[in-house]
Amino acid sequence: MTALECPVLHFQDVELVYKGPPSVTALHPFNLAVRRGEYVTVIGPSGSGKSSFLNVVGLLDRPTSGTYRLDGIDAGRLSERDRTALRGRRIGFVFQAFNLLAHRSALENVMLSLLYTGVARKTRRTQAIDMLYQVGLGHRINSLTSQMSGGERQRVAIARALVNRPSLLLCDEPTGNLDSVSAAAVLELVDGLHAEGFTIVVVTHDPDVAARGERSLVIKDGHLTEAAKTDDRQRVGRHPASFSTGSE
């Protein structure tokens, strides 16, 4: 299997149990493959296991059992230092709360994500400017993020997440703090990024956001299932998320 054929995310019998007493199974065993260029959404109510799923995908928590490969790399075999490096190179995070430095410009916020990559400052600046233009903020490059709208700040966050061209864009409730107009604009941007070939996973509680993905997974009480496509949902229903292991 070539690098391009290898799934970006590949989970085999992955389970997450928080030790007690009493112990709590946050994620029941599941198999999942997300291929390069796919747009997958994960929906569930509060307490369903979305945060646990997000933390495992983002290499913040280690699964209790099973195998998780990111770009073919077995993350379970890595030291914490190597996991941190892998996360920084391969995953771009977008958060509900933006997590930007309020008294820095859009350009500075995006450049900061390249600070420890070994890229020269001049190149960092060029790459950051290019990415801000790509998300529609070429006119706001030098604006402080504290003087931006919520939608603009989320675009800066997306630019920051993508500036080092990660394998995966991982979004946690990316429209949760936005009004309906700004949310629609951000979702259109994500659609456009998917059309350009980015691999995207969006975790949300909003059915309208979940419906944007090519595939939608449902998480409830730690159980992950895949929802049928919209036009087939009544006929097919849902089935366990053990669909593709990427080994065929």
Score class of each variant (00 low, 15 high):
Arg140His: 10
Asp208Gln: 12
Leu60Ala: 07
Arg125Cys: 10
Thr123Leu: 10
Ser51Lys: 03
Ala106Asp: 02
Asp61Leu: 08
Leu16Phe: 04
Leu86Ser: 09
Gln12His: 11
Cys171Arg: 03
Ala195Cys: 11
Val201Cys: 02
Leu170Gly: 08
Asn164Phe: 11
Asp130His: 14
Asp82Arg: 12
Glu108Ser: 12
Asn177Ser: 14
Leu217Met: 11
Gly197Pro: 08
Phe243Gln: 14
Val56Ile: 14
Met111Gly: 08
Lys122Leu: 08
His223Pro: 04
Ile219Glu: 01
Asp82Trp: 05
Gly222Trp: 00
Val236Arg: 13
Leu32Ile: 05
Leu32Ala: 05
Lys19Ser: 10
Ser247Leu: 15
Pro7Glu: 01
Thr199Leu: 07
Leu144Arg: 10
Pro45Thr: 00
Ser79Ile: 05
Val56Ser: 00
Leu32Tyr: 01
Phe198Lys: 14
Thr126Tyr: 02
Thr225Ser: 13
Ser105Trp: 09
Asp74Glu: 07
Ala228Ile: 14
Ala183Ile: 02
Ala128Ser: 12
Gln154Trp: 00
Cys6Asn: 08
Ala106Ile: 05
Val236Met: 09
Ala228Gly: 15
Arg238Leu: 12
Arg153Gln: 15
Gly20Asn: 05
Asn31Tyr: 05
Asp172Glu: 08
Glu38Ile: 01
Val42Asn: 01
Leu59Glu: 04
Arg160Thr: 06
Ser167Lys: 02
Ser105Gly: 06
Val236Ile: 13
Gln234Met: 11
Asp206Val: 06
Ser23Ala: 13
Arg235Tyr: 11
Val42Met: 09
Val163Leu: 04
Ala185Val: 09
Gly58Ala: 09
Gly138Phe: 02
Ser23Val: 15
Ala159Glu: 03
Thr175Trp: 01
Thr145Gln: 09
Val190His: 08
Val34Pro: 09
Thr67Gln: 11
Gln147Met: 10
Ser105Leu: 03
Ser244Asp: 15
Val190Gln: 10
Thr117Asp: 13
Gln234Tyr: 15
Phe243Ala: 13
Thr117His: 12
Met111Ile: 05
Ala185Asp: 14
Ala120Arg: 05
Asp221Arg: 12
Leu59Ser: 04
Ala183Tyr: 11
Ile73Cys: 02
Arg235Leu: 13
Thr117Asn: 11
Ala183Met: 07
Glu108Gln: 13
Gln234His: 15
Ser182Leu: 06
Glu248Lys: 14
Met1Asp: 01
Thr64Gln: 04
Leu162Phe: 06
Gly49Ile: 02
Gly237Lys: 06
Gly118Asn: 04
Leu115Ala: 15
Gln154Asp: 06
Leu16Ala: 02
Pro166Lys: 07
Arg81Ile: 12
Leu59His: 06
Val56Cys: 01
Ala195Phe: 06
Asp191Phe: 10
Ala228Pro: 09
Phe53Asn: 00
Val34Ala: 06
His28Arg: 13
Ala161Leu: 08
Thr145Met: 07
Ser146Trp: 10
Gly136Met: 05
